[in-house]
């Protein structure tokens, strides 16, 4: 079985996995980082989004061995202790989550959007979220959260 080593939330981790192990399985089952969720089997819901070398990626659509030596950030690595990341804070402030299941992927995806396009319009935000499904919120408050976070980050 191959051994994989990567940095996850700033810490170097390694483990022995079957070659077919997905990154999300490695995170959830080997590292017990269960904040990253699995909501589908066709790479569409986005509940599994993490950052791989600074870019959002669906961890259900990547093998753990593809992430060897990569720098991974999961939802658990976003806040600074008790201080939430501005995106997390904005979701809380704008009721951008209900059941919380899509939330980790939504937040990770949104952070990447704002990093790349701090002045994203409402249309751009909605289009960016194509790959993240939420059944609870109707997206209204998610969009509002992202807009607020973008403003706060932008200054």
């Amino acid at each position: 079985m191959p051994t994989v080593t990567m940095r996850v939330n700033g810490k170097t981790v390694s483990g022995e996995v079957e070659a077919r192990t997905l990154l999300v399985q490695f995170l959830r089952e080997h590292l017990r980082l269960t904040g990253t969720h699995v909501g589908c089997d066709t790479s569409q819901c986005g509940a599994c989004v993490v950052h791989v070398d600074g870019n959002s990626a669906k961890s259900c659509t990547m093998l753990a061995v593809q992430a060897i030596d990569a720098d991974i950030t999961t939802i658990e690595g976003l806040a600074d202790g008790e201080t939430l990341h501005p995106m997390q804070e904005a979701f809380r402030n704008n009721h951008g989550l209900q059941c919380g299941f899509c939330t980790p992927g939504m937040v990770m995806s949104a952070v990447d959007l704002v990093n790349k396009n701090p002045t994203a319009s409402e249309t751009e935000i909605r289009e960016w979220l194509e790959g993240n499904i939420c059944r609870c919120t109707g997206y209204h408050n998610i969009v509002k959260s992202i807009q607020e976070a973008a403003e706060n980050v932008g200054g």
């Binding site: 980082l33 904040g35 969720h37 976003l78 939430l84 979701f91 009721h95 919380g100």
Partner: peptide
Amino acid sequence: KRVEDFRFLTGNGNY
């Protein structure tokens, strides 16, 4: 603001 949000936003939900 919701009491439950902190755990959901930080990946500490328990599903």
